[in-house]
Nucleic acid binder design. Structure first.
Lengths: 218, 218
DNA sequence: CAAAGAAAATGAACAATGTTCATTTTTCAA
DNA sequence: TTGAAAAATGAACATTGTTCATTTTCTTTG
C-alpha cells in the first residue's frame, strides 16, 4: 500500500483495511481457541503446532504468520487467563467487608485453578523457555500484577479493620498466596502427575475450610 | 553365561561378576551425577541426552544401555531427592517437642527447596510425560510417602499435645504442606520464570516467620 | 598366548517437533 | 481483466529422543 494507492482509493480505503484487520484478529483468535482446546484435551506438552493447524484446517506456516513461535501462543493464553481471573477477582470488590472479600477471593482463585488446570499451569506453574521470559513486556504483566494487588489491597483493609495484628503486610500476603497456590498446584499435580497417589476427595475444600477458620481468628 | 561356563569357572566366577556389577553401578551413578550437574547448570528442559553423554565422554547409545529413556533418569534423580530430603526430615525426630519439630521440618523443607531448585522442580513441580507416571512402582514412592508421613505424625503429636484444637488432621496437614510448598514454588518460579518480576529479598524467610507465629498460636 | 564368545559401547539412522522461507494462491484496486 | 500486494502453503532444516545393527573391548578357555 503505497502513496499512489492511498490517494486513489480514498473511498472504501478504510472499509477494506478495517475488514482485513478484523479478519486477522479473527484468525488469531481462532488459533488461540484451538490451541486452548487442545491444551485442555491433551495437555500443553502434547499439543504440537501441527495439531493446532490441523484442527482449524490451516497449514503449519499460517500459524507462524500469526504467531512468532509457540511461546507467543502460550503467552497470549497466559494473558487471557490473567484477564479472566483478574476480572473475577475485581468483581469481588463489591463485597465491602474486607475479611469476607478475602475469603471469597481465595474461593474464586481455587475454583478457577481447579476448573482450568491447564490454564493455571500456564499462568503459575509452567516454566517457559528463556526466550519467552525475555519478551514479556511490563504492561503485559499488568493483569498479573493487578491480581496480586487485589489481594494486597484487601489484606491491607483487613489490617486497617483490626485483623492480623502483629503481622507484616507483604510477608502475610505472600504467605496467603502461597497457601492458596500451594493447594491448587498440589491438587492439580496429584490429578495429572502421579495417577497412583491421588489426593483424598475434597481435600482442597476441607483444607480451605481450615484456612478460613485460621484467618478468621487472626 | 551358560551352564558350561558356570561349571568351569567356579573359582573367580563371583569376583568378576561382582566387579562387573559394581562397574555397572558406577557408570550408572556417573551418568546420574552428570545429569544432575547439567540440570542445575542449564535447567532440566535444556539438558539433552547428548549433553549428558558428551559431558562424561561416552556415546549417546551408552546412556541408553543404562537407562531406558530420559524419564528413567529423571525418575532416578527423583528418588535420590526424596531419599535426601526424607533423611533430613527423619533426623528431626530427635526433637521431642512436636511443635518445635514441625517448625524445624518447615525450615528444612524450605531450605532444601531453595538450595536445590532443580531437584525441587523434579520432585514436586514437573509433570513428566505419561510413560513416566505409569512406570512408578509403589515401593519407589515409599520415600515420598515417608516425607508426608513425617509431617502427619508430627501434626498428630501436636494435636495430642493440645494444639490445633478444632482442626481436622488430614486437611490441616494438606494446608500446612500447601503453605510450605507454595512458598517454595512461588520463590523458585520467581527466580527462573519471570526475571523481571522478582520477589523481594528474604520474602520467604519473612513469610515463614509469619507462618511460625500463626501455628504457634493454634 | 590365541581365539572364540560374551558383554559393552558406539554412532548412524529414524521419528517427532519447532521453525523458516521460497513459492503458490488469493484478494482487490485499477 | 490484470498485476501487485497480502495471505497461505508445505517442503525442508535443526534439534532431540530413541533404536539397533555393528564394532570394540573384555573374559574365559584350550
Amino acid at each position: 500500500m503505497n502513496i499512489v494507492h492511498f490517494l486513489c482509493t480514498e473511498i472504501d480505503f478504510m472499509g477494506t483495511i478495517e475488514r482485513k484487520a478484523r479478519e486477522k484478529e479473527e484468525l488469531k483468535a481462532l488459533i488461540l481457541k484451538a490451541a486452548r482446546k487442545l491444551f485442555v484435551e491433551k495437555g500443553i506438552g502434547q499439543t504440537t503446532i501441527r495439531n493446532i493447524a490441523d484442527s482449524i484446517d490451516y497449514s503449519i506456516g499460517t500459524v507462524y504468520v500469526y504467531f512468532r513461535d509457540k511461546n507467543e501462543i502460550l503467552h497470549a493464553l497466559h494473558t487471557q487467563g490473567f484477564v479472566d481471573l483478574g476480572g473475577q477477582l475485581k468483581v469481588l470488590f463489591n463485597v465491602k467487608d474486607p475479611m469476607e472479600r478475602l475469603k471469597a477471593m481465595g474461593k474464586v482463585y481455587i475454583t478457577y485453578g481447579l476448573n482450568n488446570p491447564e490454564m493455571y499451569d500456564l499462568m503459575f506453574i509452567l516454566k517457559a523457555p528463556m526466550e519467552f521470559l525475555e519478551t514479556i513486556q511490563k504492561d503485559e504483566w499488568d493483569e498479573g500484577k493487578a491480581s496480586f494487588d487485589s489481594l494486597r489491597t484487601t489484606v491491607k483493609q483487613c489490617m486497617d479493620a483490626g485483623h492480623f495484628k502483629g503481622h507484616k503486610l507483604d510477608p502475610l500476603c505472600f504467605l496467603i498466596w502461597s497457601c492458596i497456590h500451594g493447594m491448587c498446584s498440589l491438587e492439580i499435580g496429584s490429578r495429572t502427575k502421579n495417577a497412583n497417589i491421588k489426593n483424598p476427595e475434597n481435600i482442597v475444600t476441607d483444607a480451605y475450610d481450615e484456612f478460613l477458620i485460621i484467618i478468621s481468628n487472626l
